[in-house]
Design a protein around this nucleic acid. Structure first.
Lengths: 260, 260
DNA sequence: CGAGTGGTTGATCGGGCTCAATAGGAGTGG
DNA sequence: CCACTCCTATTGAGCCCGATCAACCACTCG
């Protein structure tokens, strides 16, 4: 089993430049846990004492508002580090981390952070790269929330999730972890009702296929057009209102960023 | 003049642990520029070749959408580093940086990044801290955009700006750089019309005082209540619709975060 | 004084939130 | 195997916030 872990660890970017001895060393100092879906790893506001590596599964980062609304800020796909307060000098976790499904997690005390960055070639660079990518993602979310209508935001959210944690299945790409309509609503600043309605329409049009806690994107390109706003197949007859027929260019697509 | 610059540099966190010789050294390698308001420092998508320190003034980070919408992702107050692609391994700038007013900017080629982090005590830590704080801010923006109504979002935006770049003036705190209704709209995902209407109402109520490109917050506490939703002074008679009288707790206020 | 930029205000309309009611699993226990 | 419960999802009806369109005002600058 140890052997297995080392191989696996050696394949995650922050550790992939390490030799066998260093991998073992890192593993020896790590704590391993295998929480089932829905487990809270740490809470917003709680002191950040450890940093984490998600070996398998998916983590959701939540924020709760005073009014009781839940906002999903980020999803962490397997293979990535998280809880990186140590890297940016934050003494407290600033979101709640919850497992979206069954996970396998390694963690180390923050005291080891300086050592890891000093001793392990590529560790710091890769971890900071992760931070940069996440900032990008948040920046994109801000742009989406600011400029896109619900329909487009939901399309973006689905595309982002299959991009990060998609699993090929018969007839499409499934989101790789259980996800409810409520979850999608919490990622897009809308309501469960709107998400449900939209998914129903999309299913009729053959863009997605969904069941309880499962969403499969059957036509990613079609969804991408929705997300850009140049949506609504011409002549498509869709019970519901029929949406926003706007004559817009189909945008650059996936790319977009933060600058710092 | 050189002397002045050194003193000034020694007061910005990333450099404040440096000795005189190191400060001079850093300055010798820097390029200084003094762009007037509205100047583009770098563009989204452009290769990131330098990192920057804003000595005075204020920088706006913009993103443009395919549809021509402008979104203000962040404001960089004076004294902070920006354009930190080098720190997180990004080869391109991921937003456009524009001066909001007249600025004084130092910049260094990315090649010096590794040296700075190696040689200058506290430089890396402080810069990464900045990155963490900005991520927090973006996370907050996401929560606001997802859960708050326009009124609250605008209040949040004003409070954030006076927090970062407020200037005490007679009768209140002014936003420390020129700002149009359009700018506020671009920060909050709304329109110039709505911003204008709201500011008019707030001015009548004594919360703000505004003129062309100027906004002064005269009642920060009142605004904070607005931003939390527990707004609308009981019995306040306000021509316009009268807004959302919701019975909500007045939230934790300023605090909020990202976790990574 | 005309042009340009930024701001204000009214009228209208529709996207999407809200409320309400129902349906459809999945799991549990008898 | 069915009854029951809990959780998730669906769908209809109504309404309101805020976008949009349109017109006008105020100030600044050449």
């Amino acid at each position: 089993m140890k052997m297995l872990d080392e191989t696996r660890l050696s394949r995650t970017p922050p550790f992939c430049q390490l030799g066998m001895r260093q991998l073992r060393e890192a593993l020896d100092q790590a704590e391993m846990s295998c929480p089932t879906g829905g487990t809270v790893i740490f809470d917003e506001g709680q002191p950040a004492r450890r940093f984490y590596l998600l070996l398998s599964g998916c983590i959701r980062f939540l924020r709760l508002t005073a009014e009781g609304n839940e906002v999903i800020v980020l999803h962490i796909p397997h293979g990535q580090m998280f809880g990186l307060g140590a890297a940016v000098g934050q003494l407290e976790h600033q979101a709640t981390a919850v497992t979206a499904d069954d996970c396998q997690i390694l963690s180390w005390p923050n005291a080891l952070w300086p050592e890891f960055t000093k001793l392990y070639e590529g560790f710091a660079a890769e971890t900071f790269r992760t931070i940069g990518v996440r900032a990008d993602e948040m920046s994109n979310r801000i742009v989406e929330l600011s400029t896109k209508v619900v329909e487009q935001r939901i399309a973006c959210a689905l595309l982002r999730m299959i991009g990060q944690s998609g699993r090929e299945v018969a007839g499409g790409v499934a989101i790789g972890f259980p996800i409810t309509r409520q979850n999608v609503a919490d990622m897009t600043g809308t309501t469960i009702y709107t998400v449900s309605r939209l998914l129903s329409v999309w299913e009729r049009r053959g863009l997605v296929k969904s069941a309880r806690c499962i969403i499969v994107v059957t036509d990613p390109k079609g969804l991408a057009m929705m997300s850009a706003g140049s949506a609504d197949i011409d002549g498509a007859d869709t019970s519901i209102p029929a949406g926003n027929r706007k004559p817009e260019p189909l945008s650059a697509g996936a790319v977009a960023h933060t600058a710092w």
